[in-house]
């Protein structure tokens, strides 16, 4: 496996574990359709949550938060809409982000969970 893919995969594992601890029920991983990919889909009580996981080793090349741009958010919105339509979900849903920074030897420096990133004003 390519090194960056491996980092991303590890990040998603960390995020899933983190969310499970927060009592989220994860129902999909790496859900793919023609609009792109959603890293995690989970239930937070009655809300359906689409989670984008971003992982970085160190922050010298920018923080994981910085790497989420409006294009990605728009993609997620479209994808989430498609998913809710497909599954006939008629309730509240939202888009979250989990940003993870890893240390040199794969140690976890921080995990930050952002609820509802739809309002992020990003470049």
């Amino acid at each position: 496996m390519n090194k960056n893919l491996e980092i991303g995969y590890n990040g998603e594992l960390i995020a899933a574990k983190y969310l499970r601890e927060k009592k989220y029920e994860i129902i999909e991983r790496n859900y793919r359709n023609k609009y792109g990919e959603i890293d995690l889909i989970a239930w937070d009580k009655k809300a359906l949550v689409f989670v984008e996981v971003r992982t970085k080793v160190g922050q010298q090349f920018g923080s994981p938060e910085d790497s989420i741009n409006w294009k990605k958010i728009n993609k997620l919105k479209r994808n989430a809409a498609a998913y809710t339509a497909l599954k006939k979900h008629a309730g509240v849903y939202r888009i979250d982000a989990v940003c993870i920074v890893l240390g040199e030897n794969s140690s976890i420096e921080r995990v930050t969970h952002y609820q509802n990133i739809t309002f992020w004003r990003v470049g």
Partner: peptide, 8 residues
Amino acid sequence: ASRGLPAF
């Protein structure tokens, strides 16, 4: 609204 993506 009680459904849909958060928006304003």
